[in-house]
Design a protein around this nucleic acid. Structure first.
Length: 136
RNA sequence: CCAGGGGGCCGGGCAGCCGCGGUCCUUCGCGAAAGCGGGGAUCGAGGAAAGUCCGGGCUCCACGAAGCAAGGGUGGCGGGUAACGCCCGCCGCGGGCGACCGUAGGGAAAGUGCCACAGAGAGUAGACCGCUAACCGGGCCAGUUCCGGCAGCAAGGCUGAAAGGGUGCGGUAAGAGCGCACCGGGGCUUUGGUAACAACGCCCGCAUGGCAAACCCCACCCGGAGCAAGGCCGAAUAGGGAUCCCGCGUCGAGCCGAUCGCAAGAGCGGACCGGCAGGGGGCUUCGCCCCAGAGGAUCCGGGUUGGCUGCUCGAGCGGCGCGGCGACGCACCGCCCAGAUGAAUGGCUGCCGCCGCGGCAUGGGUCGGAAACGAAACCGGCCGCGGCACAGAACCCGGCUUACAGGCCCCCUGGCAUU
């Protein structure tokens, strides 16, 4: 435990809505269970957040998805996350039933793509889409 | 054993590894401190946490107690409660063989209104089909006859959700509460009951339908907004007000755009730049040109964002006793039981439990066979796979309503069988 803080001390949670919106301008990698956003935060260390819209399900389903995503991020970010970046996972339909180990592999692959700077095309401009995470 | 009725309760369990959020302790590390980190202990979602439909507590606002008006709500009686539209007990009405169930259950001779369609007639009832003695006229097969008229009749038919009490007997030309009996209804007395109401008796032949979740009337209740309530602290940016300095002719400056800032949007806004309006000056005066549009200090109050607080000890929970048919109340003892805020209570695995599907085997029973044995898969056994509901605290309580896989317990009713 002596070295523990050396690795984990830089991991924190994104708490401001503006940071979530800023992440939309960063690298974007889509996977079957989720979409990963990575965006530099200017020396604040590795931070993460989770967004699950009401379209996915009721409160129980949404909370369960967030917990599993947080668990994935806690495991993956210290070793393979992007330094001084905000990492945001957006839940997609089907992400609740998806196998946990499989999600782990997909997150590792998505992080590798993001590190290489190769993102998927950003979301369609003309289509307004749903605002992500409307607060309450 | 079968069918059914009522009430109460649970809503997966255990273990391992890795994590999350509170609180407390810490002779540990860093730090001036506040704190941060490490270690330890302990606690960490529901019966509905849900819908946000009622009732309160708690805050702030308004208000002289109160009354009135408006609006909203409640609606048999009695009780319980902080309170309720909730709960308990009882009553009336309706349903069921029964246990029980349902019930928005004040007022319709205060008033207004509605009752479609159908139907002769729908609230001052009504002759369409009908029934009918006498009387008048007529027919011929000449009489206990037929037809028409005058008239009487609410018994039957028809329509309808509903036809102006029902059934029976008498009565009559035929009928009719016209008379009588019973039932129903209304009124009154008495008795029982706190009361709603019930029972007995007497009187009234009986015209006063239904709808008040139609307006309305009566009785009772209700001020408004909500923890994003409310309180505190600090900071940044620009603006507002006051005083003073500075400058000055009044006094210290209006609108729009672009840009940028606060805080991403919405919103708000300073300086610079551009334009317009306004002020001063000049000139060749229906116009053109030029000039100035400017600061500092202190204090006050407001907006935004962030942090802290409100924030969890409460109409609290668990026992036991007493009172009460019960809802519930009282006394004593014990306990502390989530406080997150992009929002903790989780991730993975193993065993057990329950349900479904498939397979194996052959213990019980079944079928075939004299038997050995074989078959099939009803019960039981073993193995594998899949599934285990509805649903996540957000200031806190009391209710209601809605959702819900599976399961447990108690009481009662009807029927069948047995002793």
């Amino acid at each position: 435990m002596l070295y523990g803080f050396l690795v984990s001390d830089s991991l924190s949670i994104i708490r401001k809505r503006s940071d979530f919106l800023a992440a939309n301008r960063g690298v974007r990698v889509a996977r079957p269970g989720f979409v990963l956003l990575a965006h530099p935060n200017g020396g604040l260390g590795k931070r993460f957040g989770v967004t699950v819209t009401k379209k996915i399900g009721n409160a129980v389903v949404r909370n369960r998805m967030k917990r599993r995503f947080r668990e994935l991020l806690r495991a993956a970010l210290p070793s393979s996350g992007l330094a001084d970046h905000d990492h945001v996972l957006i839940g997609r339909e089907g992400g609740v039933e998806r196998d946990f180990a499989l999600l782990g592999e997909e997150l590792a692959a998505a992080l590798a793509r993001a590190t290489a700077g190769k993102g998927d095309p950003p979301r369609r401009r003309p289509a307004p889409g749903k605002p992500h995470g409307r607060g309450r």
